[in-house]
């Protein structure tokens, strides 16, 4: 039986290859070429409106960046903003996804709430930035006034975009605001795919909702949780629009550093706003560094959550399922 199964697998294997082919063909043309172009550029001194043919090879961008305080600060900023956004986002999304997909849900309006929570994600980043800037504007922004009346801001002349931590928290909050509905939808879609009979069996066995969550929902959701973590990590490390639009990476700090300049904003500044010296080589090198950082952290995340993402069969789960089958 086993041999026969193997032979069949090999025969069908070719279909797998054909199925994934379109992706890689399009990827090769429209994504790989631009990326290679940039990587090669990163090893040259290509700048401004130079002719590509005149560029010479040099490694100095890479060495310069490692000691550049502004670049290093941008890495720190990226992580700070990402963490303040991500941790609450995961907690809240999970909580509400579980709530809304709970079989015993008696709370009304889950459908409406889901729609409402996703709405922030639909609006473009540019519009979001304008709206929030408006709300937190000193001296007449609505929320700015509200917070001052409530005592959240103690100094009546406090201008949030002039304060390094204030701006960071604002940006993190905006990112949270934009994405927690998105994360919620994904987790909810995944939770809905879980066979309700598991929960029924668990309730019969006397398990509490919390216990069901941790023993059934989370493990079965592992692939999706991994997806959420990775996409959030990648998105967070590449965060660009909101920091750029709210404060252009500012306010400035001593030492030539900027408070909310994430790595992507730094890259953009170097590549497109360096006056005449649009330093593409430097920006490309910074991009390569960013890629390496993302790679390392993704690898760690994958390792932590197990190799199941790469595996075909659910080696761990199969036995469980068949057990359940027998029981029920």
């Amino acid at each position: 039986m086993a041999l026969f199964a193997k032979k069949r697998k090999l025969n069908y294997g070719i279909y797998g290859f054909i199925f994934v082919l379109p992706f890689f063909v399009v990827f090769l043309i429209f994504q790989l070429y631009p990326i290679l172009y940039s990587i090669i550029l990163s090893f040259t001194n290509y700048q401004g409106f130079m002719d590509v043919k005149d560029a010479t090879f040099t490694f100095s961008q890479y060495t310069d960046l490692i000691v550049n305080p502004r670049f290093l600060q941008s890495i720190v900023n990226t992580f700070i903003i990402w963490m303040i956004n991500f941790v609450p986002q995961v907690v809240v999304s999970f909580l509400f996804a579980a709530l809304f997909t709970s079989v015993n849900l008696k709370m009304k309006g889950a459908g409406v709430f889901k729609i409402v929570y996703y709405l922030p994600n639909i609006v473009t980043a540019a519009s979001v930035a304008v709206l929030f800037k408006n709300l937190f504007n000193y001296p007449d922004g609505i929320i700015d006034k509200l917070f001052k009346a409530m005592g959240v801001f103690s100094d009546p002349t406090y201008n949030i975009v002039r304060d390094a931590w204030g701006t960071r928290i604002l940006i993190s909050f905006i990112q949270f605001w934009r994405y927690f509905g998105y994360t919620l939808l994904i987790l909810a879609a995944a939770m809905m795919g879980i066979n309700p009979t598991y929960y029924e069996a668990a309730t019969i066995d006397g398990a509490s909702k919390v216990k069901s969550f941790f023993s059934i929902t989370l493990p079965l959701l592992r692939p999706i949780v991994l997806y959420t973590l990775i996409t959030s990590l990648v998105g967070g490390l590449q965060m660009f629009e909101i920091p750029y639009l709210i404060c252009d990476g500012g306010p400035m700090m001593a030492g030539g550093r900027w408070a909310t300049e994430t790595i992507s904003v730094y890259i953009y500044h170097m590549a497109f706003e360096g006056g005449y010296t649009n330093d593409y080589a430097l920006a490309s090198a910074a991009s390569v560094y960013l890629f390496l950082i993302v790679l390392v952290f993704s690898f760690i995340t994958f390792k932590f959550f197990g190799d199941q993402a790469f595996g075909l069969e659910k080696k761990e789960k199969q036995p469980k399922k068949s057990k359940e089958k027998e029981d029920v």
């Binding site: 305080p69 502004r70 001593a254 030539g256 170097m270 006056g275």
Partner: peptide, 13 residues
């Protein structure tokens, strides 16, 4: 100093 360092960061070269 803050200003000068700020200029050095992108335009130092």
């Amino acid at each position: 100093a803050g200003f000068i360092e700020g200029v050095a960061a992108p335009y130092g070269s």
